[in-house]
Nucleic acid binder design. Structure first.
Lengths: 228, 228
DNA sequence: CGTGATCTAGGACCTTTGTCCTATATGTTG
DNA sequence: CAACATATAGGACAAAGGTCCTAGATCACG
């Protein structure tokens, strides 16, 4: 949230000020993505935004406020993307499902996503606000999946559809560290997208509630669990 | 790596010293897991190990060395687990595959895993050594999967088996943030484990190279991609 | 033009942190 | 016991970082 000094409101947000705030948030995002959270310092952000610490602290009186606005702004960008895709009325549910999977996996390869999300996950472990923002963006993502899955499998209870959405969404996120921007397996991104589309589509098409509750069936010996 | 002063070798590692190093590494891991990387300071580690910074710096002259030993030690623990399971000769390949999936998902719920890995992922983005350790542990994990997949699907080319191992391994890691220790969906861990076992088993049993290369087949309209 | 709001630079400050040094303590070994 | 390696505490030091303050610059507008 913009700085609120006792005597000044940020209601104004004059054009110059808005531009400065935008530059600050972009600079902050770049620092976070390119150098990591420990290097996200007021001075580093100010330098990258071509201003001084003194000026930065005119807009953001403390680091916490800056981090809040930064997370909010970045998360908001992703939220808008999800909604746009999930609502594409020109596609069948199965097509929309595959669109979502491929869009998300494709997005993992961008420098911003590969750099931002691992930082967010780590931050969310010990920062209440980051945890909330993370919760928010993934709720939107799962909801997008859940709507499409509902169209594909109206027979499944809502609880099971939500679980499928959770599983698919989480599975896709997990690819980040491996096929993300400049990662070891980034050349496999295309094949992984194909496997993911195939695997998740088959899963949603074919699974039944019994399997989710762990009642074994098709072609397997009864599962004797490992001693943990 | 233990401190090597010019005049002293660490070849000795006397019993008292070994104990101190163990206490330091445990303390460091706890700080990282419970408070996050930014709070992993020499003083915090020393406090938790019930010693002074001066004494800590006798064992670790700098933070980088401490971080190296910490990551190495934690990673080594996981590596040993994977090998133990993948080599269990009493189980069929499909059983071993399911064992691996369920073991990994089960492990996500531990405080150590839920806290350590997100920190490692973020660290690996900008720290060469962390990237190497992360690469190492996942190589072992994928290799465990790849061996079992080879037994299940000897007909598939090695390249495809490796891709399946990558996809499965990454998908499981992605569950961490959601069903991990004290996470929003941790109560769904059991159902997610069932879905994962079902989904990944079906995938490995049924996929063919054509699907991995993106040649559409079963029951779908040809894929017109989204404009990115 | 001039007056008030907005913006900016520069620096001061205090705390945290990594690193280092020295004086003791503790243990081991001849 | 004497001598030596090992271990520990306590503090010093500089660098980095978050925060704050003040003096100007810039700008909108009457």
């Amino acid at each position: 949230m913009r700085k609120l000094k006792p005597q000044k409101r940020d209601n104004s947000a004059s054009p110059r000020g808005q531009q400065a705030v935008a530059a600050i948030l972009t600079a902050a995002r770049d620092v976070l993505v390119e150098e990591g959270y420990p290097r996200l310092t007021m001075r580093n952000v100010a330098d990258r935004a071509d201003m001084t610490v003194g000026n930065l602290s005119y807009y953001y009186a403390n680091k916490e406020d800056l981090l809040h606005d930064l997370l909010e702004a970045v998360i908001q960008g992703y939220v808008e993307d999800f909604d746009r895709i999930a609502e594409n009325a020109e596609r069948t549910p199965e097509e929309r499902f595959e669109d979502l999977v491929r869009f998300l996996i494709n997005d993992l390869s961008t420098k911003e996503t590969t750099g931002f999300f691992p930082a967010l996950w780590a931050l969310a472990c010990h920062n209440e606000f980051a945890a909330g923002e993370m919760s928010h963006v993934y709720e939107i993502e799962r909801d997008a999946f859940a709507r499409v899955i509902t169209a594909m499998r109206p027979d499944l209870p809502k609880k099971d559809r939500d679980l499928l959405a959770l599983f698919v969404s989480a599975s896709i996120e997990g690819q980040t560290m491996f096929i993300g921007h400049r990662r070891e397996k980034s050349s496999a991104a295309g094949a992984i997208a194909n496997i993911a589309a195939h695997s998740f589509l088959s899963l949603v098409r074919g699974i039944d509630s019994a399997a989710i509750r762990g009642l074994r069936i098709a072609g397997k010996s009864g599962s004797k669990r490992l001693a943990s």
